[in-house]
Design a protein around this nucleic acid. Sequence first.
DNA 1: TAGTGGTCTAGACCACCTG
DNA 2: AGGTGGTCTAGACCACTAC
Lengths: 237, 237
Amino acid sequence: MYKYREVYTDIKNNILTNHYRAGSLMPTQEELAEKYSISRLTLRKVLQMLGDEGLVYSKQGAGTFVRPRMADSPDEILPLNSPIGVTYSHRSQEISSKVLHFDARLPTPLEQKNLNIEANEPVYEIKRVRYLNGKHYSFEHTIMPTRIAPLDEKILHKSIYDYLGSKNIMMTDARRVVYAEAADAETSQAMGVDLNCPMLVIEQTAYDQKGRAFEYSVSQFIKDHSKFVFDVHRQWY
Amino acid sequence: MYKYREVYTDIKNNILTNHYRAGSLMPTQEELAEKYSISRLTLRKVLQMLGDEGLVYSKQGAGTFVRPRMADSPDEILPLNSPIGVTYSHRSQEISSKVLHFDARLPTPLEQKNLNIEANEPVYEIKRVRYLNGKHYSFEHTIMPTRIAPLDEKILHKSIYDYLGSKNIMMTDARRVVYAEAADAETSQAMGVDLNCPMLVIEQTAYDQKGRAFEYSVSQFIKDHSKFVFDVHRQWY
DNA sequence: TAGTGGTCTAGACCACCTG
DNA sequence: AGGTGGTCTAGACCACTAC
C-alpha cells in the first residue's frame, strides 16, 4: 500500500538472499531512489528501518553498507524483546496451562507502585504453571487490575494476551527485570524441581497503547531449559 | 548545531519537568513546528526520536501524547542495553579486577562460530573476577581474537572497552543471551559462593562499527546481587 | 465534517569521507 | 576535489479519529 513498505520488503529480501552481499557497499541513496521511483527522503526512511534492525549502516561521506550477519541463534533460545508468554513464542507447539490460584484482592505496596494504582483498587492474582509439549516450562505469578478487563478461569487456560487483544488492549511497552534465584518451596513443587534449584526470573511490567500499566508479572524458568536472547543496536543522535 | 538536536533537547526537558504532563495531549505538529521555526518534517524527526525512547506516542487523527512515565527502577538494577562491564555501569564507584588467567590459544569450534573466525586464528583467553566496592561482583570469561588489538595484563586491570575505544574500536551492536546456572567448582571458588549456588549468566558477542565480532564473553553474576533491566518499545512499520 | 498525524515530493545546502 | 550521506524546506495529498 505504501511505497516505503514495498521498497523495504524488496531491499530486505535482496539483503537476506545475499543479492546485496554482507560487508559490501550498497548503491548510493540517489541510485536506489531512482531505481524505485521514490524520493530520496522516502528511501532514507527505508534505510533507517533497515538500520534499526541492524541490517545496514550508513557512514556520512562513504556510503551505505550491508552489515555482516550476526551468528544465528539456536531455536531453543527465545527473543527477550517480544511477549514473554509461552503462547506467542511457541505458536506451533503444544501448550497447556494449569491454574494454581485465581482470586481478586487489594494490591501490595509494591504492586501499587509498579501498576501505578491506588491502594483501594482491586487486582486479580493469578498463578499458573505452563507446559510446553507436556513438560514444565514456566511458573507465572501475574497481577492485573480488575478494571482492565474481566477475567475468568476459562480465559486463563488460554492466552491472556489474545483475550486482551480482543478487548483492544495491546502491549506496546514493557519493562523487564531479569535475575537468578533459588527455587523456594512453592516453586519447586509447582515446577517439579529440587528446592534451591537455580531459576531464571523475569519480572515484567506491561504497558498498553496509552501508557497504562496493565500487568505486573513474575515468571520463573528452569535453568538450562530456557535461554533468552537480546540484540542491542546502539544508535547516537 | 543541528536544529533537531536543539528542539529534541527542549521538548525532552519540557516532558521531564512535567511542562508537558504525562498522558496529556501535546500541541499539534504544526503548532510545534511553528513554535520552533522548523519544518514539520524536522519536527517529526524529533518526535520519532522521543517515541523511540518511549516518551511520547502519536495516534493518527488524534494527536501526540506524552506517555505516562514508567516506574523508576532502583539503582542496583543495571540497564541490559549498555555495555555489560562493571566500568561503564558504575562509573562513580570503586572498581577493581583480579586476573585469574591470561593466555593466547586457538579457538574452540563454538568460539569460531561466535566470532566468525577460522580455526587457525589465535584468540586471547581472559578470566577475571571483578570487584565493586571491594565485594565480588562478576566472574568474566572473555575470548578476543588477537588481531583485534594487542593486550597485556596491565590493560586487563582497567577497562578493556576504554582501551579498545582508544584504538577506535567501539561496540555498536551486541547479541546477548541470558540464563540461570548453578555455580561450578571454578566459579564458586572465584566468587566465594557455595557450589551450585544460582548464578545469572550473560553471554555476549560484541560487534564493532563494521559489524566485525571482536569479543565473546560469558559473565556470571551472583543471585540477588545483580539485576538487569530492559525496556521494550514495540514499533510497527 | 473538521482536524490531526502519515506519506511523499523536488530540490537546496551542509558535513564528512575518500581519492 | 568530488561524491556521498545528513539536514532542512514548503507544500500537497491521504488516512484516520473524534465529534
